[in-house]
Amino acid sequence: MSYKSILTVLTRAADAQLAVGSAARLAQTLDAHLDVLVLGVDRTQVGYAYIGSGAVMMQIALDRAEAEARETEAAVKAELAKRPPGLRASVEAAVTQLGALSDIVAQRARFADLVVLARPYGEGKGAESEAVIEAAMFEGKAPVLVLPEAGLGEAVLPKRVVVAWNQSAEAMTATRMALPMLKLAETVDITVVDPPQHGAERSDPGGMLCQMLVRHGVHAEVSVLARSLPRVSDVLARHVMDQNADMMVMGAYGHSRFREAILGGATRNMLEKAEIPVLMAR
């Protein structure tokens, strides 16, 4: 398996340099095709309105979404124009209501080998930023590389990777989908935090995963850590710093009674504090 179709999704022009610049560098390094989806989002939720005013409100919101889409599309094309010759890329722009955004993103993500997105939290980020990442992972079933503010490192591809392993199906899916990256890394650290004493891997935590990765040519080792901080995400974040890692791989966890899933607390905590790219899958 290799990444040959890379997708990035933008809902605001401010993310063009980070998301498009990073995704384009990755696409050129991996000889992949880059698809950029630009969405102008109508964020209005009309509950009630006086007679005649609802249509006016909807038209104003639609005009604003179209203007934002044009502005973002222009920023994307300007960023792509900076790339060296040879990049294969396409740009698609559309306008959608917030409620329909997930369907559009999921449809595109299903046909991508990897989705590259800016971190959904921070100044200026709205509900649509988190909705995009949720749709790509939970409904599109695609691996998502979430970028910190610094973007990708100078080497583009990671050299030192930490894999967060807890024996779950989500962690296994993320690891399998990260294999193209793991095989190119210099070292891969399988990190197990406070493994259960009576689990399936009680005698050798992470051992079977390490064996699988080594058979794929991955330079893998295992670190078993105590839960010395209140949250597992805190332990992982500190270990990433200790290892001087430049990418983390972890399963995406979520919960919802009304939609397929929303990001759970552990996933949100990791994304909020991560200073390196995080590859997640469900």
Rank of each mutant, 00 (worst) to 15 (best):
R202W: 10
N166E: 07
L157P: 07
W165G: 13
A274Y: 00
V249D: 03
A155L: 09
S22A: 15
R70N: 10
I262Y: 08
P180E: 05
P205G: 09
G265Q: 03
L80F: 02
V188D: 11
M247D: 04
A245P: 03
D35H: 14
L26W: 07
A226R: 15
T11N: 14
A93R: 10
V38Q: 07
A32M: 11
T72W: 00
L34M: 12
T267F: 02
Y3H: 08
D31N: 14
G251W: 02
A200N: 05
A65E: 05
P196A: 02
P195S: 07
M212F: 15
S22T: 12
G99K: 08
A252V: 11
G251Q: 05
G21R: 11
E272V: 12
Q45W: 09
V38L: 03
D242Y: 09
G265D: 06
N166S: 09
Y48F: 12
A55P: 00
S53M: 10
L26I: 10
A65D: 02
A74F: 05
A185L: 06
Y253C: 07
M212N: 08
V115S: 00
Q28M: 15
T11H: 09
E79H: 03
L152F: 10
T29R: 15
A220W: 07
A200F: 12
G199Y: 02
R268W: 01
R215W: 10
A261W: 01
G21S: 12
C210G: 15
E68M: 12
L182F: 10
S168L: 07
A135M: 09
M172E: 13
V36H: 00
G254Q: 10
L236D: 00
V161S: 00
I262L: 11
D194I: 02
S53F: 06
L30M: 06
A131H: 08
G86P: 03
E68Y: 01
R110V: 02
G254S: 06
Q107D: 13
A67I: 04
A89L: 07
L225Q: 05
E71H: 11
A112D: 02
A106I: 04
V224M: 07
P205R: 05
V235S: 12
A136V: 03
C210S: 14
P158N: 09
V163Q: 03
E149A: 13
M250T: 13
S223Y: 08
S102W: 00
G124A: 03
V95G: 00
R110W: 06
D63Y: 01
A74I: 05
L39T: 04
E272H: 14
V146S: 01
V193G: 05
N269G: 06
A150K: 14
A220F: 04
A93N: 03
A155I: 00
E272P: 01
A13P: 06
Q28C: 05
Q167V: 13
V156S: 09
A245D: 04
I51T: 08
V192D: 04
N166H: 00
M250W: 09
L117T: 13
M208S: 15
E128N: 03
V232Y: 02
A65P: 02
Q197C: 00
E260W: 05
A131I: 08
K183R: 15
T173M: 11
A100I: 04
I51N: 06
A61K: 00
